[in-house]
Computed example of a mutant assay.
Amino acid sequence: MERRRLFFNINWWYYYKTCHKWTNISVNKDFDEFTIDERGGKRGDSFWDCYPDSELEAKQFVYQECSKTEAAFTVETLARFVDQRFDELNNLKKIDQQLVRSVESCRLDLRRFGVKFTANSSRSYFLGHEREDVVKHRQEFVKYFIEREQHFYTITNDAVPQGRIPTTAQTILLYHDESTYKCGEITAKRWIMPDNAPFYNKGRGRSIMCSDLLVMHPSGPFFSLTEKEYSEALKTYPNLNDDCDINYEKNSASTAIALGGDNYFNNQSILNQFKRLFQLLPFKKEYKSHNFLYLVENSRTHTAAEIHLNDFRMRPGTRCPVDKIEYIDENNKKKLS
């Protein structure tokens, strides 16, 4: 104990002596003498100080690579990108494998850029959105609507959006959408008053799947008829009130089913829903003299295959009960995958 106290006192004595020395030099002597040994501060320009534009390019490159679906980006990828850009800027030809900025330095750069190396899980995922054919189809899809914007009911981009009526060949856009809702669904966080906290809901309850028809029209957002319009439709199509396996919303083609077991909207269910829609549409007085365009969620899981959808796992590389699947492509030809 005494030895430790003695060692501690000696350290503080040297500390005070050093502080007194440099304070005396700073106050009473030449400032150049104070800074001559270059204690602290910036010793020289860093790599990014010399190439600030390259740093911006590196940040953009990291952002793009980390935004891709595949997890192929590594620290070495960034190091090689920086090295390549350095050679291009200085018109140099690579003669060895040495990098202008090391992998270790690039790892520190990634942390400084705000990138974290963490578990690749518990996030939204999708597959196939970057395939060449998918990108081409998406571009054609967007182009179609941009070129025909004047035909649809739209809204302005103002702070308070206003509806815009189409100027030519008025067209109503109908969109078929399916959503699943869970009873007792809970969020990760919520506001809680300590003295009045509610009971915690441990279960998520049963699920219900809704199949709706949204319309881009001032009468929207969902398609439905008035009581008078529906009565007129019944005179022409009495079967609209027939009992069936699917319960439709009143005066509408929207429907819902409780999920559980083998319940799911299959091909026949969707076809019956659209048949009902086509029977109801002519009786909507606000839609007179309009054209219609339907956007259908073309899910290939709406199938009458012998194998049920629930037999397959959601993630690739997991459970799959079959080796190959036979399906019909967009050209109505059978294919084996």
Rank of each mutant, 00 (worst) to 15 (best):
T69Q: 09
Q84E: 15
L56R: 11
N120F: 08
T236H: 00
N332E: 04
S224Q: 02
R190F: 01
Y294Q: 02
P166Q: 08
R319P: 00
M193P: 00
K94S: 15
Y125V: 13
K288L: 05
R4T: 03
M314I: 13
H129W: 06
E88M: 13
L214V: 03
C66S: 13
R111F: 00
D323K: 15
D311M: 11
Y230A: 09
V142A: 06
S224N: 10
F81N: 12
T226F: 01
K202Y: 10
Q162E: 11
F73S: 10
G44W: 09
T226P: 05
E330K: 06
L110N: 01
V82P: 01
R204Q: 12
N11S: 14
R123L: 05
L240R: 06
N196V: 12
F145Y: 08
H176K: 00
E140H: 09
D96I: 02
L336I: 13
G203F: 08
C210P: 00
N251M: 02
E229I: 01
T74E: 09
Y264H: 12
H129C: 04
Q162T: 12
Y200F: 11
D37A: 04
D329Y: 05
V82I: 14
V115F: 12
D45Y: 13
Q162R: 14
N201C: 05
L173G: 07
E147A: 07
A256I: 04
A304P: 00
P221A: 12
N90A: 14
P316Y: 14
E38L: 12
L281T: 05
I95A: 11
F73E: 13
F7E: 07
Q150R: 10
H137D: 09
C210M: 11
K29T: 00
F61C: 13
V27Q: 07
L240C: 07
Q98A: 15
F113T: 02
K333L: 04
R101D: 00
P198E: 08
N331A: 06
F283Y: 14
W12I: 13
M1S: 05
E232H: 03
I307S: 07
H290L: 03
S289M: 14
C244T: 09
Y200G: 00
D96F: 02
R123H: 11
D158Q: 15
P198N: 11
E297N: 15
F278Q: 08
D177C: 11
Q64L: 12
S207I: 03
P52V: 08
T303K: 08
I95S: 12
K59N: 10
D87N: 14
D109P: 03
A197W: 00
E185W: 13
D53W: 01
S219G: 02
L78H: 01
G41Q: 10
M314Y: 13
K250E: 06
K21I: 01
T226V: 01
S299L: 07
E147I: 04
E326A: 10
Q139N: 09
I36Y: 02
V135H: 04
L234P: 03
L56K: 15
H137S: 06
H302W: 05
D83L: 01
H129Q: 15
Y14A: 08
K284T: 04
Y16I: 01
R164M: 15
L281N: 04
R148M: 12
P316R: 11
F152N: 02
K202L: 05
L99T: 07
